[in-house]
Write a protein that binds this DNA or RNA. Sequence first.
DNA 1: CTAACTTTTTAAGCATTCTTTAAGTCAGCT
DNA 2: AGCTGACTTAAAGAATGCTTAAAAAGTTAG
Lengths: 222, 222
Amino acid sequence: MNINILVVEDDTRIQDMVCKFLRKEGWIVDACANGDDALSLFYDKTYQLIILDIMLPGTNGQELLKELRKIRDTPVLMMTALSDDDNQLRAFNNLADDYVMKPFSMQILVKRAEALLRRSGALKKEIQAGKLVLFPETYGAQYEGKKIILTPKEFEILELFVRNAGKVINHETLLTRIWGYDFEGNEGIIHASMKKLRDKLPCGVIRTIKGVGYCLEVESDD
Amino acid sequence: MNINILVVEDDTRIQDMVCKFLRKEGWIVDACANGDDALSLFYDKTYQLIILDIMLPGTNGQELLKELRKIRDTPVLMMTALSDDDNQLRAFNNLADDYVMKPFSMQILVKRAEALLRRSGALKKEIQAGKLVLFPETYGAQYEGKKIILTPKEFEILELFVRNAGKVINHETLLTRIWGYDFEGNEGIIHASMKKLRDKLPCGVIRTIKGVGYCLEVESDD
DNA sequence: CTAACTTTTTAAGCATTCTTTAAGTCAGCT
DNA sequence: AGCTGACTTAAAGAATGCTTAAAAAGTTAG
């Protein structure tokens, strides 16, 4: 699977350098230099990692992080020249995942990025929730070792559920994450898609929370 | 669920300090001062986070981490006085998750620990009152580990009681908190809902205070 | 101690809302 | 053209939330 990373940094020298080193790892890197561009990228695209400078023209990194966290749980690495503890604490309070201070070695940045990717499961070739295993590279799926054929859209939905196993995904989230913010259609598509998906899975795997959303059941050991 | 953390640090002053601050978060902390003790703890017990000093008598932190990774994927935060990049890189190559250099503020250590716990899914949000556990993320509930299926409205009510365990919630409060100030219906709904809820819980969990309201029993009195 | 009264419990049933299901349209691809 | 997958629509079905009212339990006063 491809790893997509977003770098938000206004200093073009640093931006170039960071992008270069990340790309050397085989990762796909987008970059932007201000808060507004970053914000619209947050909405449009899903990244496996976001690297955020704090000092930015317009919306600063901390505010950006807060906005991001309203819609995504993407791992975030904060990158800054500010070496005071206050800023670092604020970043973690805003649910950052890591915080590095300039000047830093590029190797270390890359290693820290890799650690975040590894821990968030982005580097895994397969993702699992209970008896369900997904192979994002091939759009393949298995339940108890038995192959399940899914269409791309079905896979996308199921992947969202597996990556959030045990959490309710409400209708709105489902709609925006799968069909995007600008989707013009109606909610019927959710129900139609969920039926198709359920038809291919053993019953009980996806639970309905009426009036709220759906939830992938993970086995609890009792 | 309880969070278990292991701190491996030979300097007792630092060890005490770290443990103290982690415990303040409500986490359960084990500590040891050398590599051999650490290693046997790795095997015996599962931790949600391990904090490892690098300079240790006997097996050092890097070797310890390598050994750990053969059997466990526990998040690891390395903690060290060594400020050279080589050691940091080696730590990440050994699959550490974070690396902080002494001297560091305790607050930041705690925040970084929290970030790792959050990302690894150990900080699953749940609220508890006695034997009753609620999972707001899934609208799920357990009593003595046994699953209880609740409707969203029932969950909402029970959540209010759990968050105010042991306190009486009077009818008016219940009505306004759950159904809102502008609710047009009559008080019958309270009683109907409470019955539904009680039917799903062991008897005695919700006590009636006649003429006043209801109260979640937090202590079993026999 | 009992009768009258108040409050809660319980049960039945209805209405609404949300979900499921199925059939059908449309667009892109082979 | 025929197939497949994505989406729309609408009817059928089910769960939930709510109302109502009678039965039960508890309280108070004579």
